[in-house]
Design a binder for these strands. Structure first.
Length: 1032
RNA sequence: GCCGAUGUGGCGAAAUGGCAGACGCAACGGACUUAAAAUCCGUUGGGCUUAACGGCCCGUGCCGGUUCGAGUCCGGCCAUCGGCACCA
């Protein structure tokens, strides 16, 4: 292949264009306030999950997602967006540290080398990253702010009254350290002696370290924890409106693991204290015949009677020696011992024995359970093994046996609640307990607090010092806190982090020493998407303007906020097609403006009327000096620019009746309800800090053709809140997208839970503290599938099936590489690499080249003489517009494979043509540009030499529009079916009516043949498609 | 065990409930060439039938259902892959 003549000179044009783009700073995104910043352009933030720069470089799997985002970025630029498309490095991490331990090479050096290699690879693929925004999490200028964010977390607490993070100064209790969002705890952790470090649960796989596969044991240690559990509820709730794959949302929900039930307090026979247990089935309380505590439960020692103490302590010792793996492995056979103590069941005052068993986990619920063997599999197994009593308290709905039935039924043998269904019984018994102070409804989460410290060198040091056994934070001016230079990065082996070796550094003052732990790798990746908005800022982690602009688009009229408003109105129009005009003023929009609106918002309009709020209208008229008057139908003509500004105007701070709409965390929804002959709908209910406020409430009579708008004023009164609540309760909401945050985030499923959950958590803390304007970081998430080797196995050194993008590019060029990555199949799917597949795509690009170019006598490529300025013929026009339509729609849907297929159809159709009309070729080149930017740029330029056009850059062209009229044919082929089977096809005029089609079908000889002797029962006519004759 | 995703030609894959297999790869045949590569044109799901043009039947993991009509919707299985795992 290397010796082969190149099908087109990609080896020349690709470096040429890459250099040109770089020189012209073509992909540098401007922030508000920068010279030449254009506020009229909507923003689009498209982000890749940034890589850890490993020593082995990129293989062809990595750039899959990067190519998809690059196509989107280039496409959005052509559509007039201000695009933020950055790249950076998740540069702290264990591999570099382990390499340092082996070779003595400082991690900073290897990291720098690896980054250089990654960057070379990425640049050679021709990605349109804004390299001026490159960041590196191990750069002090970056991690200074990671440390600053940690301090923000350290200096706040979760305020139950406001349900959000508040500064610790608002805490009025006696011990602030006990409520901080970052706190120190002695916790049993996964200690890996080989790595000399503690690992997070998720870094332990099958009892072995994820990195290296070394054994892991439990060991209590003093650790920094982040109180993510306080945000569990919000992490579930605020997930809902995001445009993420359902599977990922489900994973997150399951990981958080919310379960609702009750906490019940059991008295202990012969003791003062009580034991609280958590149960999701308070209705089975009468069936609780024993209780089980986790072996580590603090009450175990106090409760255990003398006779049992030896057995109990033996059992506890035995459990402690086991790893988590062994505990779950041995789970097949239940184990446990009796403590000798008894608890009192609060509903019937019966004494029930208290056992300990390792099937109860200290970390979940209260670390204690009431065992209901009749209706819980584990309890039943345990009770049978140890011969404990079993009492049936739920009657299954069918004939199923009651013992072992875990579903919902009817309560029995439960005097207080007999005869009630499970859900009624739960409510009833919980109320009964609550009245007596014996219990209360409670919610439990699987989610654990985040173990945030690591005993490593290559990570962010904590900005914390210890003095007299207490921790305190460094001042912001002391940041960044840079790791001390070290010769030896090995674990100390005692559990003390390597930083302990830097004795001078550790000594902060006469009396204070520095924290020795470092932060986990997640820390830097938790907020990098924010830093990209303003990477060079030395004053703040991100400037307010940059953050607000890139996360919400505010400061400029932009697609997201406009379309939100319009989408509301669109929904209304759709739902009430016959509703006449409301008393709100209608603004007339010209046809071309409507087309523009549709282009920008992707919405269709019913007519060209756009509802405008009175407030906004007054505002606009004032600006225009009141020179436009309403006509008789209360319509006023205003321009597109004004319309696009409406969302901004509506959010103006002087609009008092608008409530706290300028605040943060709004959530727009549309609720509709029909009640008592009237239709109520509330446009945009705003949810902020747990409060609901309605922006506008409409009420209209449902009867009669003319619905009447009675009220349309914005209020935030208590009444309104109630109405909104009741509507919400009784009518499912139209699921409005929550606009804001990164517009498109693409990465692998391996980060489905942790990275995304941690980043969301940090984002919410920063949002609560007023540093951010959105409550969620990532609006739309897409996971790319992994690319397998040619042998169908995962790419790895072990199989020798790793493919380096640079090798592919050397043979086929970057454009072919990019196109093949996208042509392989759907982005989300797992699929194997194929070199012959690359060749096929490369042939397609060569055909594009030869569509415009031919070789002269001297063997030089010159513009083909077949390229002419004439108008395309009808068939060509159809292909051109069909391609424009399909490519546009497919890019929006991230179906890049079918977009490329359509462009192949285009090329196949034009290759054979005698003359190749300029307009068609130009259209193709613009459509192709996001996919094959080098080739299309070169051909565009060559075309411009003979046929000049302004602006002359392909990157300044408008995205082509298709016109539907060119897609329809005069005649259309109709399939004739008999009993659902195609028997013939006929050409008919597009205008043929259903009756005509039916008649044509029935007289068709082939149809006749098949219905001979049968009775025609029915004829189904689908216009423009088929006729199905049903006969028997 | 639980949860999720996937299942269509030799291969990667297309198909708002409306003509299954677009597009590409591979294979085969042809044109060009002294020859090969490259390029261009054509054929290509399986079976049966016809001298031929054609025609018929079967086909989207399996079984059933809804429908005039199902790759697509519903129910139940099977297989592969991924995730979680005593969560009270």
């Amino acid at each position: 292949m290397n010796e082969r003549r190149k099908p087109y000179p990609f080896d020349v044009i690709e470096p040429k264009w890459q250099a040109l783009w770089d020189e012209r700073r073509l992909f540098h995104a401007l922030n508000p306030g920068d010279p030449d910043f254009d506020p009229a352009r909507p923003k689009y933030y498209v982000l890749d999950m940034f890589p850890y720069p490993s020593g082995s470089g990129l293989h062809v799997g990595h750039p899959e997602g990067y190519t998809a985002t690059d196509i989107i970025a280039r496409y959005k630029r052509l559509r007039g967006f201000n695009v933020l498309h950055p790249m950076g490095w998740d540069a702290f991490g264990l591999p570099a540290e382990q390499y340092a331990i082996r070779t003595g090479q400082h991690p900073e050096i290897t990291t720098r080398e690896n980054i250089a290699r990654f960057k070379t690879q990425l640049e050679r693929i021709g990605f349109s990253y804004d390299w001026e925004r490159e960041i590196n999490t191990s750069d002090p200028a970056y991690f200074r702010w990671t440390q600053w964010i940690f301090l923000q977390i350290y200096q706040s607490w979760f305020n139950p009254a406001t349900q959000k993070a508040d500064p610790i100064s608002t805490y009025t209790g006696h011990d602030p350290d006990s409520v901080r969002l970052a706190y120190v705890a002695e916790v049993p952790v996964n200690w890996c002696p080989e790595l000399g470090t503690v690992l997070a649960n998720e870094e332990v796989i099958d009892g072995k370290s994820e990195v290296g596969g070394f054994p892991v044991v439990k060991r209590p240690m003093r650790q920094w924890m982040l109180r993510i559990t306080a945000f569990a509820e919000r992490l579930i709730d605020e997930l809902e409106p995001l445009d993420w794959p359902e599977g990922i949302k489900l994973l997150q929900r399951n990981w958080i693991g919310k379960s609702e039930g009750a906490e019940v307090r059991f008295a202990i026979a012969g003791h003062d204290g009580t034991i609280a247990v958590f149960t999701t089935r308070p209705d089975t309380l009468y069936g609780a015949t024993y209780m089980v505590l986790a072996p580590e439960h603090p009450l175990v020692r106090r409760l255990t009677t003398n006779e049992q103490s030896q057995i109990v302590s033996d059992y506890c010792a035995q459990i402690a020696a086991k790893s988590d793996l062994e505990r779950t492995d041995l789970a097949k056979e239940k184990t446990g011992v009796f403590t000798g103590a008894c608890a009192i069941n609060p509903v019937n005052n019966e004494r029930i024995p208290i056992w300990i068993a390792d099937y109860v986990l200290l970390g979940y619920g209260t670390g204690a359970i009431m065992a209901v063997p009749a209706h819980d599999e584990r309890d039943l197994e345990f009770a049978r093994k140890f011969d404990l009593p079993i009492v049936e308290v739920v009657q299954p709905p069918n004939d199923e046996p009651a013992i072992g039935f875990v579903g919902h039924g009817v309560a029995i043998n439960s005097p207080l609640i007999d005869g009630l269904t499970t859900s009624e019984a739960k409510r009833e018994i919980t109320a009964w307990l609550a009245q007596r102070g014996l219990g209360w409804s409670a919610t439990s989460y699987k989610l654990r607090d985040w173990l945030f410290s690591r005993q490593r060198y290559w990570g962010e040091p904590f900005p914390i010092v210890w003095e007299n056994g207490r921790h305190r934070s460094l001042g912001e001016t002391e940041l960044p806190l840079i790791p001390p230079p070290l010769e030896d990065f090995k674990p100390t082996g005692t559990g003390e982090p390597p930083l302990a070796r830097a004795q001078d550094w550790v000594r902060y003052s006469e009396t204070a020493t520095r924290e020795l732990n470092t932060m986990p790798q997640w820390a830097g990746s938790c907020w990098y998407y924010l830093r990209f908005c303003d990477p060079g800022n030395a004053e703040r982690f991100v400037s307010e303007n940059a953050e607000r602009y890139w996360m919400t688009g505010e400061t400029a009229p932009l697609e997201t906020s406009v379309s939100l408003e319009l989408r509301n109105l669109f929904e209304i129009a759709k739902n009430f097609p016959h509703a006449p005009h409301r008393t709100v003023t209608l603004a007339a929009v010209t046809t071309s403006e409507a087309v523009e609106l549709r282009r920008q918002t992707g919405l269709d309009f019913i007519g060209y009327h756009h509802c405008i709020d009175n407030y906004a209208l007054r505002h606009i008229l004032k600006e225009h000096g009141d020179d436009r008057r309403e006509n008789a139908r209360e319509q006023v003509s205003i321009g597109l620019r004004d319309i696009l500004r409406i969302p901004e105007i509506l959010r103006a701070p002087d609009r008092i009746e608008f409530g706290r709409v300028t605040g943060r965390g709004r959530q727009s929804l549309l609720y509709v309800k029909e009640s008592g002959g009237a239709i109520y709908y509330v446009e945009e209910i705003l949810q902020s800090a747990g409060r609901l406020m309605a922006k506008t409430l409409y009420k209209r009579r449902a009867t009669g053709k003319r619905a009447i708008t009675e009220a349309s004023a914005a209020q935030t009164s208590e009444t309104f809140r109630r109405v909104a609540k009741s509507i919400e309760a009784s009518f499912p909401s139209v699921n409005q997208k929550h606009e804001g945050g990164v517009d498109l985030y693409v990465g692998g499923t391996e980060h489905a839970v942790l990275h995304l959950l941690y980043a969301r958590f940090w984002h919410k803390v920063l949002f609560d503290l007023g540093h951010l304007t959105t409550n969620e970081p990532f609006q739309r998430l897409v996971n790319q599938g992994i690319i397998l080797g040619e042998d169908g196995r995962k790419m790895s050194k072990r199989w020798g099936n790793v493919i380096d993008p640079l090798d592919v590019i050397a043979d086929y060029g970057a454009d072919a590489f990019r196109c093949y990555e996208m042509f392989m199949g759907p982005l989300e799917q797992m699929k194997p690499w194929s070199m012959t597949g690359v060749e096929g795509v490369s042939r397609f690009l060569a055909r594009v080249w030869r569509l415009l170019m031919e070789e002269n006598q001297a063997g030089e490529w010159i513009l083909s003489s077949a390229v002419v300025e004439s108008a395309p013929d009808k068939a060509q026009l159809k292909v051109m517009h069909a391609t424009t339509k399909k490519v546009t729609e497919d890019i929006e849907a991230l179906s890049f494979n079918t977009a490329i297929a359509q462009m192949m159809i285009f090329v196949n159709a034009f290759t054979t043509a005698q003359s190749r009309p300029l307009v068609a070729l130009r259209t193709l080149l613009v459509l192709l540009n996001p996919f094959a930017p080098h080739l299309s740029s070169e051909l565009w330029e060559t075309l411009g030499h003979k046929f000049p056009i302004l602006p002359d850059e392909i990157t300044s062209q408008p995205w082509p529009e298709y016109q539907a009229e060119f897609l329809v044919e005069d005649e259309v082929e109709i399939a004739l079916q008999v009993n659902g089977k195609v028997r013939d096809r006929i050409q008919v005029a597009l205008t043929a009516t259903s009756a005509e089609l039916e008649a044509l079908a029935l007289v068709n000889p082939r149809v006749q043949e098949f219905i001979a002797g049968l009775t025609v029962r029915k004829v189904v006519v689908i216009p423009k498609k088929l006729v199905n004759v049903v006969a028997n």
